[in-house]
Simulated scan of single mutants.
Amino acid sequence: MGAVLRAGEIPAIGFVAPSGSGKTTLLRKLVPLLRQRGLRIGYLKHAHHGFALDRPGKDSYEIAAAGARQVMLVSGAHWALLSRTNEPAEDHPGGFDALRARFDAQGLDLLLIEGFRSAAVPKIEVFRAATGKAPLYPDDEAICAVVTDDPLPIAPHPNVLPLGDPLALADFIGQLVRERAGLLADGLFADPRAELIASLQRLQVGGAQDLVIGSASVRRGHQFWITPDGALGQAVVPDDLVACLLDDQAPSDASLDAALHGQVYRHRPESGALFHTHGPYSVALSVGGHDLVPLDDEGARLLGEVPVLSCGPDRHRPPASEQLTEAFAAHPACILAHRGAYAVGATIREAAWRAITLERSARISLLAGAALAR
């Protein structure tokens, strides 16, 4: 994102604004929304006035004061590495890239940066006219969006997002990450087809053995790749996935669900993956024809109410286009009676986790119903 990344580097987005503009407040609201989209978030902040993670009298402080340049503290599930240096952050050996490299690239999908205005990453500016400061975007081409509730004084300007709508910002960042995923060089992002196959394999061996996959797809821009027709229960490799265009008829060897996947993507442009599962509990629950209202906290948080749609006399065909569009416009998942569940997400991880959560919530609902019937 921004400058071309090298293999192993974490994609990063910078947040820039004068002090007092509300960057940190906005980030506190944004991080949970990005996590809901399946992104693992890191955070790097440039503190202009210094900071202290240790205090005089503690063993680690005294050892560092005696000359140790690096001190690691470990306690329970937490650890911290304290490194003493005489250089300001901007002059850190290797600069911003060296600081980014200290994060665990295998455990993060996105690094949010506060400060470091000169870093070569896409940036989002928080602008408040009340600060009396001029906007930064006219002098920084890396600023790709401005979050503000005030009219921008200088034209032209980048994308404008409302300060009071962090959901819109989360959607913008999710889309930015997905778009750049297909453009970055040197293998930083895996082939989306390979990522989808790996996710399908994890679903089958990672505690979701009952979650039989009917079809699955991953989207990049106006194209998506879907499992082939008749692939259920077979070993599928990335080259087996069938490429489809959103506005064209799916190839004959694509899953019979390809048209449905394309329809969902057209009406949910923020979506990046879709899973159709034949979970026994969601299928059993759909027979009653009642919507699923998850009883478990995680299901309620990730899914909300899950509509159950009737397919009509032909169970092998999706319901009417208007019915499906309406369902997915308001819900991230739905169940087609007798056919199974569909779960969509901004990322493959988010869609897969929603599929798992839906099946678990359906099971809890059926168990609770059986218990109450006694």
Rank of each mutant, 00 (worst) to 15 (best):
N159I: 12
V160E: 13
P162L: 08
G164C: 05
D165I: 03
P166A: 08
L169S: 12
L169M: 04
A170D: 06
F172M: 10
I173N: 13
I173K: 14
G174H: 11
G174K: 07
Q175E: 12
L176A: 15
V177K: 09
R178N: 12
R178P: 10
E179H: 10
R180Q: 15
A181L: 10
L183R: 14
D186W: 09
G187V: 07
G187F: 04
F189V: 08
A190T: 07
A190N: 06
R193G: 06
R193T: 04
A194V: 07
E195Q: 09
L196I: 14
L196G: 06
S199W: 07
Q201V: 00
R202T: 08
L203V: 04
Q204D: 10
Q209A: 12
V212G: 09
V212Y: 08
I213C: 10
I213V: 14
A216Q: 11
R219F: 06
G221E: 12
G221N: 13
P228F: 00
G230S: 07
A231Q: 12
G233F: 08
Q234I: 01
Q234G: 02
Q234W: 02
A235K: 01
A235H: 02
V236Q: 03
P238L: 00
D240Q: 01
A243N: 11
L245I: 03
L245F: 02
L246I: 05
D248W: 00
A250M: 03
A250R: 04
P251K: 14
A254Y: 03
A254N: 05
A258I: 06
A258T: 05
A259V: 04
